[in-house]
Design a protein around this nucleic acid. Structure first.
Lengths: 188, 188
DNA sequence: CCTACCGATCGGTAGG
DNA sequence: CCTACCGATCGGTAGG
């Protein structure tokens, strides 16, 4: 067992925060996970809150990047929505702990950081709503409230944090395709 | 300010557990909410865990009753799915705290109670899967994996615990109808 | 329902 | 990364 890096600590924190929640995880729990004492963690990080901040900010950045990518990418509105669904599913299935912590524990962030994360989440949602609105205006999707349509689509995707298992019956890609179909047919 | 009943304590516990989580809520917080000391709560309840058990069991019962009701009720498979969607949405929008606690905090239940709740949740999901399978077999829904279809439908509904506001732009009924359409079109 | 309290655990620090 | 520790807070109890 070699020495642990700050990166290892952040990873393990993501895992435990996702599993037991921020308030259900003590620094001693986190130490156990890494094979050292709770107090020893403080040579790697400043505070427990800072760990939460770091895990969640990394999650937020992933979704932000996806939104930028899909917005800049080409194709018809319907295709952009499909691309976003695939990308969103891929983020969660390959960073499940970070995503779960981002979605469930952000309310426990210190005020300033919480506001910043809520802003990022709002911006992401706005981008998705923009894509869906285009597809409503251009025809493929039926006339409906874009805000509600967006929430419903993201609900399907975000629930992946709760039930996806990498060793499950279906691969992440198969699941993503089923979600593309469900969401797009659901909006037509 | 009159004296508090056990019922008041359970209600307030549901509210705080939904808002800040089980581990993020102290008995002193709960006392504050009710205008008394944390230690005074113990004349109403045996333990903090027992409060969690009570809130969550009440939630589980609501969904169980809905499943029984819809199963016994008549109509084509597609109509039953629509009824279930409406009923599930109604439970969450009219018992949001209980539902959120049921869905998010059950992992913190003592072992025995947690297993019982997981069983109830599994039975509920089985019932829904049965209805969806019927609608796949009978034609209205396209051929697809019923388990995944069920998870996706319930994901849309359960996310209501996260965003629904009684004073929002749309009524609970309007939202429920939009979900009926989204889910049923998504499965066709 | 409060007063007065308990042992356990929490996040965190000093010093090595 | 550990030893040794700190004050604060936790769930909970005895007695009134």
């Amino acid at each position: 067992m070699t020495t642990r890096s700050r990166e290892d600590v952040v990873q393990a924190a993501g895992r435990l925060f996702a599993l037991r929640g921020f308030h259900g995880t003590s620094m001693r729990d986190l130490g156990d996970e890494l094979g050292l004492l709770g107090s020893s963690l403080y040579s790697h990080v400043e505070s427990k809150e800072q760990l939460l901040v770091e895990v969640i900010q990394r999650g937020a950045v992933l979704f932000q990047s996806l939104a930028d990518e899909v917005s800049a990418g080409g194709g018809a509105p319907e295709k952009k929505v499909a691309d976003l669904v695939r990308g969103h599913a891929a983020i969660i299935t390959s960073h499940q702990d970070m995503s779960a912590t981002f979605l469930n524990e952000a309310r426990f962030l210190p005020d300033r950081e919480r506001r910043a994360i809520v802003d990022m989440r709002d911006r992401y949602e706005s981008t998705v709503r923009g894509l869906i609105s285009e597809a409503i205006g251009n025809g493929p999707f039926r006339d409906q409230d874009p805000a509600l349509a967006t929430i419903m689509a993201l609900s399907v995707l975000n629930a992946l944090t709760r039930w996806f298992r990498a060793d499950g019956r279906q691969s992440a890609e198969e699941i993503a395709e089923a979600m593309v179909e469900f969401i797009i047919e659901g909006l037509k």
